[in-house]
Amino acid sequence: MSSEAAAAATAAIPSIPRDDDGPVFRAPWEAQAFAMALTLHDHGVFTWPEWAAALASEIKRAQEAGDPDTGETYYLHWLATLEGLVASKGVASMDTLHRYRDAWDHAADRTPHGRPIELRDEDFR
């Protein structure tokens, strides 16, 4: 399933960095962001044309704000697009995303080095 889904995404989004076999990623989180988009698409949250348009406008916005557009920031735009669509489609608000972001930050802060970082209720306070 996932390879077909990935192939569909790669075909629909020509800007995805790739080699002969398919998408390539500069860091693990980029693959994570890619996989989340595939999953949301599978759930019908957006179509690939919708995604492509949202991503293009995110990249345009970033470039106008001075993004050097060297390819290194591609998945940062991808991540911003994910956040934007998750909010605009009513899956979760930006406020919610910020709250979870702060909670993870808190969790990291209280976790001694070498221990797994886990989110707890107290991190949301």
């Binding site: 994570q32 989340m36 999953t39 949301l40 994910l82 956040e83 998750v86 993870w104």
Partner: peptide, 9 residues
């Protein structure tokens, strides 16, 4: 941000 998204989703 990636962790936050993943947890929420």
């Amino acid at each position: 941000r990636v962790r936050a998204l993943e947890t929420v989703l």
